[in-house]
């Protein structure tokens, strides 16, 4: 009796590497052994506050010069100043609007082209055979590498900018739609055929709806690529836009504007991603459930 240790007094080994040890029994309401289970909201808030604090500390203590890293409040002040006075004689919201128009316009075009193309590639060996090589060829090339070609071919106007973003979004959206075609279970397809469905009906009523979750995920990934390419697209002969703002501020070593622009781009992209996740939950609530 006395030999046995009371389990409640045993020390719990806890630490950042505790997740590598053998897992203990979970609390009711959780499932034992699910990887990465648990709520992360507070940790995320903590992480953001922590980064801002460290940033503030470094600038406050004078460990880095403001030229390299301005203080958080300097960036905030810059934001308010640009908000009120604009940047290079253009109102702030116009910069935002023009960049958003470029990214979302290119995104919309890429979806209009990429989703049908991807579905066609998934459905037809003919289309897949024809379009797979060009797509796979250009996909791994960084947009900066073919930017000069875009300029030579399409000039320095709006079309080369939108086209560059379009191309960076097109590949992930197309590939997502293409693999989404394989989501339908063979039983679902057979069930439809056994009701006398035509191939077109099977595509419309079985294959498309089951591809929807993967298409939406591909769109989320695609728009991410779009924002990534924005700055590259606005490197050339742009006079407006967030990417232009960041690039031209960097030439005048206005670091606070650079950081402010980066944060604005990140916030818009993140906000849109949240919107997409919301849409996802609304229109494909069955995702991963059957």
């Amino acid at each position: 009796m006395t030999e046995q240790a009371d389990p409640n007094t045993q020390t719990r080994k806890k630490g950042i590497f505790s997740f590598l040890m053998k897992a203990r029994a979970t609390r009711p309401g959780e499932t034992y052994g699910v990887p990465g289970q648990g709520d992360t909201l507070w940790l995320s808030v903590l992480s953001i506050l922590g980064i801002i604090f460290v940033w503030w500390l470094f600038t406050f203590m004078g460990w880095v010069k403001p030229l390299f890293l301005p203080a958080p409040q300097a960036v905030l002040n810059k934001f308010l100043q640009v908000w009120n006075e604009g940047f290079t004689n253009t109102p702030f919201l116009e910069h935002v609007g023009i960049s958003a128009a470029r990214v979302f316009g290119a995104f919309l075009l890429a979806c209009l082209v990429g989703i049908p193309l991807g579905i066609a590639m998934g459905m037809s060996p003919l289309v897949r055979g024809l379009f797979d090589p060009p797509l796979e060829f250009y996909r791994p090339i960084p947009p900066l590498a073919y930017l000069p070609l875009m300029i030579i071919w399409f000039g320095i106007g709006e079309s080369s900018k939108v086209l560059l973003i379009f191309l960076s979004v097109l590949a992930p959206v197309t590939l997502g739609a293409r693999s989404g075609v394989k989501s339908a279970a063979i039983e679902q397809i057979h069930a439809a055929y056994s009701f006398g469905a035509s191939r077109w009906q099977v595509m419309r009523h079985v294959i498309l709806p089951s591809a929807l979750p993967e298409i939406l995920t591909a769109m989320r990934i695609g728009i991410g690529f779009g924002w990534t390419t924005l700055v590259a697209a606005e490197m050339v002969a742009a006079t407006k836009g967030l990417g232009y703002m960041v690039l031209s501020a960097s030439q005048f070593l206005q670091t606070s504007t650079v950081i402010m622009g980066i944060i604005v781009i990140a916030v818009i992209a993140y906000g849109f991603d949240m919107l997409m996740r919301f849409v996802e939950r609304r229109i494909v609530p069955w995702k991963g459930r059957m």
Binding site: A192, Y193, S194, P209
Partner: peptide, 26 residues
């Protein structure tokens, strides 16, 4: 395949984007 021979599968054959009524009426 044809509608005169309906198939009931072991699983995975329902359409999760439709409710029960629409599945039955599919």
């Amino acid at each position: 395949p044809g509608a005169d021979r309906a198939v009931v599968f072991q699983k995975h054959a329902l359409m999760p984007w439709l409710n029960v009524l629409d599945n039955v009426a599919f």
